[in-house]
Amino acid sequence: MEKPSEEQAAAEPADSVGEGGPSSVAGGQAARPKDHMTLLLRLRAQTKQQLLEYKSMVDANEEKTPEEIIPEKQIETKIEDLENEIEEVKVAFEMKNLALDRMQLSTALKKNLEKSNSQTSVLMDNMKHVLKLNKLIMKSQQESWDLEKTLLDVRKKRFELKQASESKLLEIQTEKNKQKDDLDNMENSDKIKALQGNLQMEIQITTVIQHVFQVVKPHTPLIRFPDRRDNPKPNVSEVLRSTGLPSHSSSISQHSKGSKSPDWLMHQGPPDTAEIIKTLPQKYRRKLVSQEEIEFIQVCFGHYHPIVQYILTFLASGTSYAHLHAFPIVTVCP
């Protein structure tokens, strides 16, 4: 059980501030008002503080706690939250204290520097060193910042180039696709088909015309017997001479028609001379073709190829192949 508590009154403090007024009138009256004053001031401070405490208590109590019973865990969490808040406020207070201390320190340092000069050298050296280091730090920070900036610029440029190249490749791709599409379209286009049809028609027309020409051409008399009524013995050289030029001219004109006959005429073998004809024995000489035969051949076979006509005349005259090139024929092409 408890013991009855004892009360003990504290002994009066030893300092000059007395409690209340120990009534010793003889003791320094001049000191008393001063004592009273300090006591009163102290009491005022005390009362202020206590008033503040009570006020805070009242304010805290104004916040109503909920009536229902809160489980203990929630109370714990609430307590922790409040403690965290207190910690944060304390930290802020500490920071402000530090700032204040730093300011006070700097002013004290300044005053100290102004006062004494002998000690300043070390301090000044230290401060200069600190300033130098700070400058170096700032410079290196600036450099690093610049380098980072250039790096960023390079990266940005690279990215832009990449994008441009991507777009270009895309363009190329689309162009290629378009070309391919065009090519495919061209193959199936109607224009080409029309052109092809036209071409076919042209080919057909040309073949028809060729046929026509080949058919029409033989209608012109290609050979004609020379007129030998007055001179029965042919003078080959004369005839050749007389026929050479026109034959050449006729061959040239024949060339322009596109016929193959002048080739044969051009490639006459050894020139016919009168001597050869004269040296030829009688059996090799051809016998003369009568005028009626000439007219018949000319009329009937004048349309045919000259080679055919040659053959017919040989058959008619009965000469051998050896006399082929001695046989003067005038081909006239009107």
Partner: peptide, 30 residues
């Protein structure tokens, strides 16, 4: 401990109560 405390210099009046356990008796004016 109480004696030691009372020996200390203090500007205000100190009062030291000693008790073995609570609750304190209510009849005492403290």
């Amino acid at each position: 401990l109480a004696d030691a405390m009372l020996k200390e210099d203090c500007a205000s009046t100190l009062k030291v109560h000693l008790a073995q356990s609570l609750p304190l008796p209510s009849n005492v004016n403290r």
